[in-house]
Design a protein around this nucleic acid. Structure first.
Length: 269
DNA sequence: CTCGCCACCTGGGGGC
DNA sequence: TGCCCCCAGGTGGCGA
């Protein structure tokens, strides 16, 4: 799935086609996502989409009277298709806009579609989210402060959405490579200089991935319905045993917190 | 509060 | 071909 760049690319792909448009119908063929798709989904019919926003990996469709919250989980994608396109097995939710339908496909059903009439930032899923990595709020100083007192590995902390949002397994590995930091390093012991380098690396890799149209691995499909062929060439992710593109050393795969971590034992210390 | 771990799902790929 | 096992980009929630 979708880490921040893929969600942002989806947002940008979808927004021009739905902003200012009236939802003619909202359809849930399978309500069994991570949480049940609420019955209030159907009340979207007749409402206008005012904006498409993003908070972390959550997409927020600002509508008259509320926000539709969409999370793509690990295998979700949103596509714009001609209305009437027959749904596939894993196409669970549709928003119909006249000639087009915005369709959620999510084979693993780890995604979510929720509706809230309160301010979205107060929603339980969003209320405790951390800093946006591409915002000015993420500075070297901020990362330094966020890491103090934490013995957990820096890679694990990067993926903790209560501190920093949007960084998943791929971009955690890649940004640590760019910063030359061992993913196992205790977060609280990183120097100010290393925090500064890591912040630069995080912003760089996320921006680059957005520019590339999102790293397209198996499940990500661009919102226009074309399978993304763009794949950000990874430095370390998914390359165990292969030579480091920078120094030639054999890359390693380890497991941290039940997740695979890829790194270069020579470049990252 | 932090931590370590589990669970929720389906599908693809490799080995036999 | 078929079967079985392993792996996968997330993250809420549990108990310690």
């Amino acid at each position: 799935m979708p880490e921040l760049p893929e969600v942002e690319v989806t947002r940008r792909g979808v927004a021009p086609f739905v902003t200012g448009r009236v939802i003619r119908a909202a359809i849930a063929r399978n309500r069994r996502l991570r949480w049940p798709v609420p019955a209030s989904l159907e009340t979207l019919a007749g409402r206008t989409v005012r904006a498409v926003e993003r908070r972390g990996k959550y997409l927020l469709f600002a509508c008259d009277g509320g926000h539709l919250i969409v999370h793509l989980g690990m295998s979700g994608s949103l596509r714009l298709l001609p209305a009437g396109t027959p749904p596939g097995k894993h196409d669970h939710v549709d928003l119909v806009f006249g000639a087009r339908v915005l369709r959620l496909r999510d084979p693993r059903r780890f995604g979510a579609v929720l509706w809230t009439e309160a301010a979205p930032e107060t929603h339980p899923l969003l209320a405790h989210l951390g800093v946006e990595p591409l915002s000015r709020a993420l500075t070297a100083k901020r990362l330094y402060e966020l890491t103090r007192g934490h013995r957990t590995a820096i890679k694990h902390l990067l993926m903790d959405a209560r501190r920093i949002v949007g960084i998943g397994n791929i971009y955690a590995c890649e940004s640590l490579f760019l910063a030359g930091i061992d993913p196992r390093a205790p977060a609280g012991r990183l120097s100010r200089a290393r925090c500064a380098r890591l912040v630069v690396s995080i912003k760089q890799i996320l921006r680059k991935a957005i520019r590339a149209g999102g790293a397209s691995l198996r499940d990500f499909v661009r919102s226009d319905g074309e399978p993304g062929h763009f794949q950000l060439r990874s430095w370390v992710y998914g390359r165990p045993g292969l030579p480091c593109r920078r120094c030639g050393a054999a890359l390693r795969r380890i497991v941290q917190g039940q997740r695979a971590t890829f790194y270069c034992p020579r470049c990252q210390r």
